[in-house]
Design a binder for these strands. Structure first.
Length: 431
RNA sequence: GGAGAAGUGGGAGAGUGGCUUAAUCCAAGUCUUUGCUAAAGACUCGUACUUACAAAAUAGGUACCGUGGGUUCAAAUCCCACCUUCUCCGCCA
């Protein structure tokens, strides 16, 4: 959620919507109409609230006098009848004020975060910038297969039966693929907790609507998550949701910051609107495993932390010896709540292209404001919102794809990356 | 799923209709006195929104005692629904 006060202040200070704050929102597609509407509503909100509060103050004063008189054993009927007359209008004003306030809040929830000044302005994903490329695209002396062909030949991935059991965009992993998936999860969790100092976490895989509002999925992207009918429960689209809301409505001590967690969870996405994209294989499934990195930190440290967090995700790719590149997303391609995002894209020889395998974002105080997560400054000042960051470290299913495709051999077998072998009974290949 | 109990400020814990943002204790902070790993005393000690002021400081107002409704001139206190926690029973990995 953006800061209404800041928005108002900027608007007052001249230049209307042309300053950096609102320009940032415009760059990523929030229309001036919405902003205008918010400003109007905010004014109306303040007016109605003032009226309602004044009326209520008046009523409270009279009620106080009634109490005073009763205690003294005197007659209060004159005031009582006076207050009786006020009652209706006070209530009406209060209802109005509550309504306008709720409307403003609702509208604010639909406005995306403001991009950081270092984010390139762009119109499509083509305007993303390559920050660096690590490793060379893997070369083969034979025609590289796509992961689903490798998987089906080795009889370790079964899409057809998943279609029977559930439906499209699900898969069974079996034998070595299941083992490899599990090895990857273990390897990632071990690396982040032991080497990078994250606190390991397995969160609930089901959350309520408040949590989804807190991280920014709701109200705008409701159709992308699976809803459990007849309840306020939803399957998580990412561990970011439960882990960020771990501190929902809490005020932390500054000394406790930063707090960092790495969380394993399956992720469930209905992917409404993506029909026809990546229909084959494991790339785009309704269910996939992911290891998520998440940090709550002091606002002054969040950009430094963003670099660090991204490097932790990169570490996994490096250890697996997978070629990848680091992209800085432009204003058009960033997620709704992000201020700045790096995507890590892994090389997939079967597809002959780089594909996203991790997305690392700084949300600044966008999520913290929605979830009311603050910290009390050491010097005793007012509580401030923390900054939240998260990134995949990594998407396990896509990592499995990357391993299969980059480590495939001409004879149809797949070599197991060295760092994973301890997790796979020290085997060196899948045959 | 059934029966019962409970949810109050950073923590503990009082408070059954008006004088209550809420006694008291602990923790925390500021100051004072004496002074060497301490003690005593005084004061302070919530959050959000909002009004006045150019702004800050400050002062006023409104709201908040699990959440949401309701009764009443007036609700932490009465009523209803829900949520959470605990205990017992049932069921279950």
């Amino acid at each position: 959620m953006i800061d209404l006060k800041l928005l108002e202040k900027k608007a007052e200070s001249g230049a209307s919507y042309l300053d950096d704050y609102t320009q940032g929102l415009l760059n990523r597609g929030a229309s001036t109409d919405t902003l205008d509407k918010i400003m109007l509503m905010a004014n109306k909100r303040r007016e109605t609230m003032t009226q309602a509060e004044t009326a209520k103050a008046n009523q409270n004063k009279l009620s106080g006098e009634v109490g005073q008189l009763k205690r003294e054993g005197k007659d209060a009927s004159a005031i009582l009848s006076e207050v009786e007359k006020l009652k209706g209008s006070v209530k009406e004003l209060e209802t109005q004020a509550a309504q306008v306030d709720a409307d403003v809040q609702q509208l604010l929830l639909t406005i995306p975060n403001k991009p950081h000044s270092s984010v390139p302005i762009g119109k499509t994903e083509k305007d993303n910038q390559i920050v660096k490329t690590v490793g060379e695209p893997t070369k083969f002396s034979f025609k590289a297969l796509e992961h689903f062909d490798i998987g089906e030949k080795l009889n370790i991935i079964d899409f057809d039966r998943a279609g029977k059991v559930t439906g499209a965009r699900f898969a069974f992993l079996k034998g070595a693929a299941a083992q490899l998936e599990r090895a990857l999860m273990q390897f990632m969790m071990d690396t982040h907790s032991n080497l990078h100092g994250y606190t390991e976490m397995i969160p609930p895989f089901i959350v309520n609507s408040q949590s989804l509002t807190g991280t920014g999925q709701f109200p705008k992207f409701k159709e992308d998550v699976f809803h459990l009918e007849g309840t306020d429960y939803y399957l998580i689209p990412t561990a970011e949701v439960p882990v960020t809301n771990y501190y929902y409505n809490e005020t932390l001590a500054e000394a406790d910051l930063p707090k960092s967690f790495c969380a394993y969870s399956p992720c469930f996405r209905s992917e409404a609107g993506s029909h026809g994209r990546d229909t084959k294989g494991l790339i785009r499934q309704h269910q996939f495993n992911k290891v998520e990195l998440m940090t709550f930190c002091h606002p002054s440290e969040s950009y430094e932390t963003h670099e660090k967090l991204t490097s932790h995700a990169e570490k996994i790719l490096a250890e697996l010896n997978l070629p990848y590149r680091k992209m800085l997303l432009c204003t058009a391609d960033m997620g709704f709540g992000a201020s700045k995002t790096y995507d890590l894209e892994v090389w997939l020889p079967g597809q002959n292209s780089y594909r996203e395998i991790s997305s690392c974002s700084n949300f600044e105080d966008f999520q913290a404001r929605r979830s009311n997560i603050r910290f009390k400054p050491k010097d005793g000042g007012k509580p401030q919102f923390v900054h939240t960051l998260n990134g995949s470290g990594l998407a396990v299913g896509r990592t499995l794809i990357a391993v299969l495709e980059n480590y495939q051999k001409e004879d149809g077998s797949v070599e197991i990356p060295k760092v994973l072998r301890p997790y796979m009974g020290n085997k060196s290949s899948i045959t």
